[in-house]
């Protein structure tokens, strides 16, 4: 059974993004994924992210957004987490700005276990405790811990 650490790595988390706009957030997190060898082509990945953005709202409320891209340029399915220092204008279900961005990079042909884990993480983003920790955590460990616990209730 896969665990949260199989898709969430410390190197793909940045709790003090410098981005001030949605485009800058997407750029900064894409850059991070590229540097960490998760994706092989930044432009192609961003194209896919924007394509999904056009299909519907990814701001799921409570200051959290989940842009996601599924494309062959993703080498391994992971989650990147970014937190901004100011409110970001991002279309969301509660019409509130966003501060925490969970970016899903999904490998085109992936084993279902990985996909299931990513889906479970998505579900957890509705939990009050998880939301609070994402907004307030000072270390990535705090985030990993709360997502680990959340995994047990399904």
């Amino acid at each position: 059974m896969l665990e949260i650490q199989d898709v969430l790595f410390e190197e793909n988390v940045c709790l003090n993004l410098t981005a001030k706009t949605k485009d800058e957030v997407i750029c900064e997190l894409t850059e991070l994924l590229y540097l960490n060898d998760v994706i092989s082509d930044k432009e192609e990945f961003k194209k896919e992210i924007y394509h999904r953005e056009e299909e519907g709202i990814t701001g799921i409320g409570d200051g959290i957004a989940i842009p996601h891209g599924r494309t062959p340029v993703v080498k391994k399915s992971v989650i990147a987490i970014g937190r901004t220092q100011s409110d970001i204008d991002w279309k969301s279900f509660d019409d509130k700005p966003v501060r925490v961005i969970i970016m899903f990079a999904i490998r085109d042909v992936d084993i279902s276990q990985h996909i299931m884990l990513l889906s479970r993480v998505a579900e957890m983003l509705l939990d009050k405790e998880v939301i609070d920790v994402l907004h307030s955590a000072e270390t990535i460990d705090e985030i990993i811990q709360v997502l680990k616990q959340g995994g047990g209730d399904r």
Binding site: R52, E55, R70, E123, L125, L126
Partner: peptide, 17 residues
Amino acid sequence: CPTGIAHTYITKKKILE
């Protein structure tokens, strides 16, 4: 949902709750 990774499951949870 289009990607079948996130919104499908989040929406389910929201509806059940």
